[in-house]
């Protein structure tokens, strides 16, 4: 994968999409072969250097990464835990640090008015946007997104994917998103990778594909 690429990973449930993303953010160790991530091998790194590498990779899960009991501002600030020392992280829970950047990020997902709300009081779509705001303050070079559009209405899904793509482009990095909606994949990505049972069965630039090809791939009714 090259910088500037936007890859949609598609495939049926259990095909290995989440595992692929886990390999890419060094959460899942490879059972065979090696992973090269931003020019380094994560399995060879330990401690601080591994954490530095990880802080350059940002992941949006299906809202499952948020801590419901914390206020929105802390969940967004969690994006900076890779660069903050522990003392600053602790103090921030008492007096929120770096507030301007948090508010700017929340502004971009239209949630600035909820900055001090407890996260578990938000709706599913709002939480998804908090997760995106966390990435905005993390400013990673590689953006990974696991089903970022589930739980969102089509218009919002479109906006969120646009934000993620823009974020990746901002740092000259790349976006990898697992997607269920063929139309979204075609609109926002430059390349589509299809997985079935852990194997790559499709790898083509978006320009060579149509919505119908992808729908065939899913086996969904047309």
């Amino acid at each position: 994968m090259d910088a500037g690429e936007r890859v949609a990973v598609v495939g049926p449930s259990g095909a290995g999409k989440s595992t692929l993303l886990g390999l890419a953010n060094a959460a899942v160790p490879p059972t065979g072969g090696t992973v090269e991530l931003l020019g380094a091998d994560p399995s060879a790194l330990r401690g601080r250097t591994l954490r530095q590498l990880r802080s350059r990779v940002g992941t949006v899960h299906q809202q499952l990464e948020l801590v419901g009991q914390l206020r929105v501002v802390h969940n967004v600030n969690a994006g900076r835990l890779g660069s903050w020392p522990a003392s600053r992280a602790a103090w921030s829970l008492v007096r929120p640090q770096g507030l301007p950047a948090v508010l700017e990020a929340l502004d971009r997902v239209q949630l600035a008015d909820r900055v001090y709300e407890r996260t578990d009081r938000l709706s599913g779509g709002q939480r998804q946007r908090v997760a995106v705001a966390r990435l905005l303050v993390q400013r990673p070079e590689l953006v990974l997104a696991d089903e970022p559009a589930s739980a969102l209405d089509p218009a919002l899904a479109d906006r969120v994917l646009g934000l993620l793509a823009g974020l990746a482009a901002d740092r000259g990095g790349a976006l990898v998103a697992s997607l269920h909606d063929p139309a979204l994949a075609l609109r926002h990505c430059t390349r589509v990778v299809g997985l079935v049972a852990g194997r790559v069965v499709l790898d083509a630039p978006t320009a060579a594909l149509s919505v119908r090809d992808l729908a065939d791939f899913y086996g969904a009714p047309r």
Binding site: N25, A26, A27, R51, Q52, L53, R54, S55, R56, V57, G58, T59, H61, L64, E65, L66, V67, L70, H74, A78, G79, L81, G82, S83, W84, A86, A89, A90, L93, Q138, P140
Partner: peptide
């Protein structure tokens, strides 16, 4: 999962525990 996500974005053990 929330703690795993924090570790994945580079948080240290203390910060991961705190948040």
């Amino acid at each position: 999962r929330p703690r795993a996500a924090l570790a994945a974005l580079g948080a240290g053990p203390a910060a991961g525990w705190l948040y």
